[in-house]
Amino acid sequence: MNPRTAKRLRRHGLNGTAVVVFLFAVFPVYWMVATAFKPNDEIFTTRFIPFPLAPTFDHVSRVLTKGVAGHSIWQYLLNSAIVALGTVLIGSLFALLAATAVARFRFRFRTSFLILLLIVQMVPAEALLIPLFLMVRRLGMYDQLLGLIVINVGFTLPFAIWMLRTFVAAVPKELEEAAAIDGATRFVTFWKVLFPLVAPGLVATSIFSFITAWNEFVFALTLISDQGRYTMPVALQFFTGQRSTDWGGIMAASTLMTIPVIAFFMLVQRRMVSGLVAGAVKG
């Protein structure tokens, strides 16, 4: 076998492997969407039906109008969006301030603060659930979306600071020094020089927080009992009845919940990856 054939064979082998991995990754998501658009007789069968033979919007329109647990899926999507956006707005502001402090200033306790950030990320959220449940009740935030927002800010903040500080550190200090020499105040320097340059990193961090809050399950399950205030992940649990599961409905609702997240991922794909890796790996 001459080297060129060998090389081409190797390339085919690699590409073939890539296709297999691709299918493994994509098939379950595809299957969710396909099931959402299949009529019931194509869902409840032992045959393998690779795609909807008679595509139907029945499940999608049913979950949007009749919904589950007494409310339309719109309501739960809206609740999830409120929680996620609230988390991002408060969280990004706090994270930006703290990241600027850590990346731009040398001060006592700076190292301690960074180590604290690392350690609090090791503490399982599920373990803090019990005291936080009591705290939220005592503060009258039980059954309130605000309670979920506050808790999500708490759990996304350490990682957001950790990730954002690398973006702040990447902005050359000379720019701010030049602005200061030109007589800009600290606030103007921050707002007009640093902020626009950190904005891409801030977007990446925000999307990370958004997705975390959008997906959050255990606190939403525990801190909300009013069905009208359920978030999507909790609402999904109510498609499963005592005897049977409404697979068409649950797949339609899961698709609706997953689409925004996948869209966000694709949108900031490259930055998300570099941000995550830079924040988590390179420092």
Binding site: L14, N15, A18, V21, F22, A25, V26, P28, V29, W31, M32, T35, I211, W214, N215, F217, M232, P233, L236, Q237, W247, I250, M251, S254, M257, T258, V261, I262, F264, F265, M266, Q269
Partner: peptide, 26 residues
């Protein structure tokens, strides 16, 4: 090919945990 595969595995990564569990249950 690498962009193609990254987009594919991104779909698995982006799927929310509750949806992941429900899909595999199915």
């Amino acid at each position: 090919m690498s962009t193609f595969l990254i987009v594919g595995i991104m779909a698995a990564w982006a799927t929310p945990p509750t949806a992941t569990a429900i899909i595999w249950k199915w």
